[in-house]
Amino acid sequence: MTDETSSTHNHSRSADVAARIERRWAIVAIAVIALIAVMAAYGGIHRATMPQTQVETIDPTTLHLNGEFIESNLGSAIEPNGSVTVRVVGQQYSFTPQCILVPTDTPITIRATSPDVVHGFLIEGTNINTMLVPGYISDLPVQFNKPGEHLMPCHEFCGVGHEGMWGKVKVIDKFDFLQLSTKERRLNCVD
């Protein structure tokens, strides 16, 4: 065997080794990504953190005149099954109601929309976080375990008053909430 052929031989062998290492890394990379995707899917299916399953629409130009988002229907309402529905409207540059009152340890559905521009809806200290897009209803199942207060900023730029658009969420004991609800049909709080 001449020197030249032996060097070519070594060359191709080192290329094979290099390709093998590279292939292994590619397989590891793909496996890591597949695992993450499966974890996300599993978490979504089994841990209830799921995107809204159904797209719900509403006429943004008349929502204040009729339907569930008329002013007298906004705030927290107790449903016959004991759960609570909170209806909120975000508009330039405030939420209605500005202070949301909710009970602890109760299944709550937040339903919110916007009549004008896109707004954000975030309850600080929780993972309750959605967008309010005109024409659509954002529907979120939530639950609070502890009494307390949370800030609720609009987190999407909605005009020059955006920085002033902060609401509040007050979580109170379930029994106190039930007592209050005997007096009023729709509950909210004063800031």
């Binding site: 995707a37 996300a40 899917a41 979504g44 799921m50 995107p51 809204q52 399953t53 159904q54 797209v55 719900e56 976080n129 959605t130 967008m131 309010l132 897009v133 024409g135 659509y136 209803i137 954002s138 529907d139």
Partner: peptide
């Protein structure tokens, strides 16, 4: 648009994957 109400859950999952 994960948090957007105008996009369905199915396409959110596909885009996430």
């Amino acid at each position: 648009t994960f948090a957007d109400p105008q996009v369905g859950a199915g396409f959110k999952f596909i885009h996430s994957a």
